[in-house]
Design a protein around this nucleic acid. Structure first.
Lengths: 278, 278
DNA sequence: CGCCAACTTGAACTTAGTCAAATGTCGTGG
DNA sequence: CCACGACATTTGACTAAGTTCAAGTTGGCG
């Protein structure tokens, strides 16, 4: 009995005859397992949205989610310069990775939402070049370097899928860099809010209408390279122009299309189909 | 007969007795091969500076350098949005990867110098999210996705070394992002010139005294998120302050230590020892 | 020689930062 | 219940950094 999810469509096949009732029973058992895996893990959900994962691969992925730990908001999970070998898969809550300068100012490099890896690069460099802070209380699965490499060796397709997700993250960092270098404050904010919405939509936490967002204006300032004061002004302007409203922990897109036009937002780099479905 | 280069020191050993003259002959043969490989390939040189590579791994690395091609300055090697599966190893010359915005402005994400990979991420995403432009005439070895994966499968240590180099590149992009978000124009320029110097020193093309640099002030402007006019002013100021001189395709550090202090340059993220020498 | 690209400089302008102060909100302890 | 502090948000007035526009200068090369 074989089973796979292909671009959202379940496919199953068998090479020998079976009674219909037995076939049905098996399929339903597998479906239940899959549903379980996908519902329990935003990472699985994210990867499944792009890449065909077999039952076996899903099982390996699930095994990576053992060793679950909780962390409280605000206390650094990893600190810049710390030598640490573990990565994490974020299961619930938001985090951000940032670097602090000697003069005290900080730059947020990226936000992580459920399904994202934390500190994958640190594992390879054997040293964290940045800090990671939980923005709210979070749940994360610790992944030891050895387990990850083991999983890669046993399921190369999964390895490719994870590397693909890492590449996608890197593409987002590049887009962020472009924003800091070549977009003014309004465009930067618009682009940021749109990108975050697109990412959240992938794990079922947002839509074109808006999304819940626990970030403070200080987080936005540190991410966008602006002062908190200016962030506030920009948000006011966007709100008054009926483009987007950021208020009380919630982002509401008042006019998605005009916002996309302002930000010159092109979600191509997020939308791409994965590398496995050839 | 075994042989390795370990942090710049050659090591050889054998498990059976051999006549001294024969041993000597073998060692000199191997040395010649290695010298050849290292001189011919800046990538080999870069990796060897951090990671112990065996004779076999060096041979595999050399094989990746077949299929050498030339490209003229200014004509895009890869274009944004292009679907392309090959990556390149830059053998000679300088290139830059950049993104252009719909409004025509461009942001240079990174410069590549000999020994760097071009478009490694594009291979995984099956699509280039940026363009690559040779700054001068360049020589690059085309690496097909298949060859790369084959080499990875046969020599996992080499795979780790290359992934490590890729992580290091990503760390540089992050540092660049921090610069755009949280450093003013002077610091940004100082930091950039220092980082470039450190990278070039790794492949023997620069020192604490300075280095040859084919970039124009427009390149600097596009990389640092400044206008070309302002780049000119910043360069003048740094020159007048006797910190660094950028002129006639040559960067000269007039006062390395004060420049490091101004830029708050911390080369930790470039200096790190590789992942294999545990 | 004349052209072109890179570089240089000045002046006016715009964006975003800094400083300062007021408002709002939430949870804690009296 | 209210007072209080901690923190996030909001607004205004002023300032500094960097852009834009415009007009040269320089140097290499056909």
């Amino acid at each position: 009995m074989n089973f796979a999810i292909l671009a959202g469509i379940a496919v199953c096949w068998t090479d020998r005859k079976q009674s219909p009732s037995r076939l049905l029973r098996e399929v339903s058992k597998i479906l239940e397992k899959l549903l379980n895996a996908i519902q329990n893990s935003p990472l699985t959900r994210k990867l499944s949205a792009f890449v065909a994962l077999s039952e076996n691969e899903l099982a390996v992925l699930e095994r990576l989610h053992k060793r679950r730990r909780s962390f409280v908001a605000g206390r650094d999970l990893v600190h810049q310069g710390q030598s640490k070998q573990a990565a994490y898969i974020l299961a619930a809550g938001w985090a951000c990775s940032y670097k602090t300068q000697p003069d005290g100012s900080r730059q947020i490099v990226d936000f992580q939402i459920p399904g994202d890896f934390l500190g994958l690069r640190s594992v390879l460099l054997h040293m964290s070049d940045h800090s990671i802070e939980p923005i709210v209380d979070i749940q994360a699965a610790e992944v030891l370097a050895g387990d990850l490499l083991g999983a890669f060796a046993r399921t190369p397709r999964l390895a490719t899928a994870i590397l693909w997700a890492a590449s996608r993250d890197e593409a987002m960092v590049v887009e962020h860099l472009v924003g800091l270098g070549r977009r003014d404050a309004d465009e930067r904010m618009a682009h940021f809010l749109l990108e975050l919405g697109a990412r959240l939509a992938l794990v079922g936490m947002g839509s074109k209408g808006g999304y819940a967002c626990p970030l403070t204006q200080y987080h936005l300032a540190d991410a966008l390279g602006l002062s908190a004061v200016h962030v506030n002004r920009v948000l006011r302007k966007l709100r008054e122009d009926k483009l987007v409203t950021f208020r009380d922990g919630h982002v509401t897109f008042d006019n998605y299309d005009r916002l996309v036009a302002l930000a010159q937002f092109d979600p191509t780099y997020l939308d791409h189909i994965g590398p496995i479905l050839k």
